[in-house]
Computed example of a mutant assay.
Amino acid sequence: MEKPALTDHEIHPLIAQRWSPRAFDSKLVETGKLAQLFEAARWASSCFNDQPWAFIIATKDDTVNYQKMLDCIVPGNVVWAQVAPVLGLIVAQKAFKHNGKPNAWGEYDAGQAAATLVLQATALNLVVHQMGGFDATKAIATFNIPETARPIAAIAIGYAGETSNLPADLQERENAPRDRYPSSSFVFTGGWGNSAPFV
């Protein structure tokens, strides 16, 4: 299923095609494609080029680690995420590598790495669903994440599946039109709340 964005202005097709479905196919993702995703993330921009991100990944053919990852996801997301062939955590380092000082931009930069990964996935005909619905405390204990890092999101990666395989309530959400606030509501000039004239 494709749900291209209905944009007010022309944007790159990769951005328009990207969306976050819950319907996954159980087909495994080729290891070469997985490597491409994380190579894309590797080249995201970051403050001081510190690259303060890490990804903890479990593929469905690694049944032990996949189950450990699934156990960190909240039940409402497990309903659909358990079909995805790849699950993971996005983790941000709390301090800069070069001087050990707190990195106030670490989570922002980890988000950029995730966004870059998602666009690469879209280019490879894969889909990614990012989730706040996971148990960070359990993830820290399960995967021995050090105190110097913080898990900030969970992700499901795979090929798009059939919406009809989802529970009825999720089918409705999956089939609902995509929507966004207009650019004029968040692009300002001259002061907060003054919409920029070009949007």
Rank of each mutant, 00 (worst) to 15 (best):
I15T: 15
I57G: 07
A104F: 09
A136F: 01
S184N: 10
T59S: 03
Q36N: 14
A154S: 12
H129E: 02
L89K: 05
T116Y: 09
Q112K: 09
A123G: 12
A141R: 12
A156C: 12
I15N: 10
Y181D: 13
I11N: 09
K60E: 08
N175Y: 02
P151S: 01
T59W: 00
G111R: 06
V187R: 14
G190F: 04
I157P: 00
A176L: 09
N77G: 02
A110D: 01
K60S: 14
K138W: 05
D61E: 11
Q112H: 10
F38D: 08
R178D: 04
Y181M: 15
G190R: 05
L87S: 11
T148P: 03
G100V: 06
L117S: 11
F188T: 06
P21C: 04
Q17E: 12
P182R: 03
G106M: 07
W43Y: 13
A95V: 13
L6I: 15
P4E: 09
P21H: 05
A196Q: 00
A196P: 02
F96S: 03
F48I: 12
T142I: 05
P182Y: 01
D61G: 03
T59K: 05
L34S: 11
A176I: 12
Y66S: 10
S184A: 15
G133P: 11
P52E: 05
S185N: 14
V187K: 14
A54K: 10
L28Y: 00
N125R: 15
G76M: 11
L124F: 02
I73N: 03
A160E: 10
K101S: 12
F24Q: 00
L14H: 12
Q171K: 08
A123M: 05
V128W: 04
F198M: 13
Q112D: 04
A141I: 04
L119M: 14
A58K: 11
A123H: 12
D109C: 12
V127Y: 01
N194T: 09
N175P: 00
R22A: 03
F48W: 15
F48C: 13
N49T: 06
A81V: 09
L6D: 15
T122V: 08
V118T: 15
T122S: 07
T31S: 07
L166S: 04
F134P: 00
F96D: 03
K138P: 09
R22V: 01
V187A: 11
N194P: 01
A92C: 07
G191H: 10
T148G: 11
R150N: 06
G88C: 04
N65M: 03
L87Y: 10
T63E: 11
Q171G: 09
R173V: 01
A136L: 02
Q82P: 08
V127I: 12
A113K: 00
L166R: 02
T148Q: 04
T116P: 06
T148Y: 03
F55K: 10
W19S: 06
D169G: 03
G76T: 10
P13E: 12
A113I: 11
P13D: 14
W53M: 03
Q112F: 09
L126S: 02
N194A: 01
E162A: 13
S26F: 05
H12K: 04
T59D: 03
K3L: 08
Q120D: 06
P167S: 07
A160K: 05
L87G: 07
G158V: 07
Q17A: 15
P146G: 14
L117M: 15
L70Y: 02
E174A: 08
V74K: 13
L70E: 08
Y108S: 14
A41C: 08
P151D: 00
Y159A: 00
L87V: 07
K94P: 01
R180F: 02
